[in-house]
């Protein structure tokens, strides 16, 4: 018997309504055996609440160009669950990528390959599905 599937929270921060990116990533993660909890577009408070109540092993944030909103969410998650890994995708300007990485957040900008993101999820949750 393998261990229980790892759980990943997928959230969108900012006001941008595009769901395509996160949905495609969510499917790839599901197909790799993860349980992906979608919360849609949310405030920092809601991301934190979902991360706690759902007891997830990883948070994926889709940044719709509003880096400051994402940074607020990241700060709030760090305060509530400091051990919880976070990765980001979406429209992330180069200057923001560097700043997020300095906070220990991995960034997968447009053009990133799905296997790369799935590998990151496995590494960050220290999990290998069979």
């Amino acid at each position: 018997m393998t261990t229980a599937p790892k759980r990943i929270l997928m959230a969108k921060t900012g006001l941008d309504g595009h769901w395509r990116g996160p949905t495609i990533v969510a499917r790839a993660l599901r197909d790799a055996g993860f349980e992906v909890i979608m919360v849609g577009m949310v405030t920092a408070d809601e991301v934190v609440r979902a991360a706690i109540d759902e007891d997830v092993d990883l948070v994926g944030l889709n940044i719709g160009g509003h880096v400051d909103v994402a940074e607020r969410a990241i700060a709030a998650i760090r305060e509530a669950r400091p051990e919880l890994p976070i990765f980001c995708g979406g429209v992330v300007p180069p200057w923001a990528k560097k700043r997020l990485e300095e906070k220990g957040v991995e960034v997968y900008p447009p053009g990133s390959q799905l296997p790369e993101i799935v590998d990151a999820a496995r590494r960050l949750t220290r999990w290998q599905a069979d």
């Binding site: 599937p5 969510a26 499917r27 993660l29 599901r30 197909d31 790799a32 055996g33 993860f34 349980e35 992906v36 909890i37 979608m38 919360v39 849609g40 949310v42 405030t43 408070d45 809601e46 609440r49 979902a50 109540d53 759902e54 599905a129």
Partner: peptide, 26 residues
Amino acid sequence: LTGGAILGDRVRMHQAAVDEGVFIRS
């Protein structure tokens, strides 16, 4: 086939989701 899942119920529960008197688990 893979054991994976997409749990999407929370998407429709935004307002309740930050209320102290509510606990939602997918």
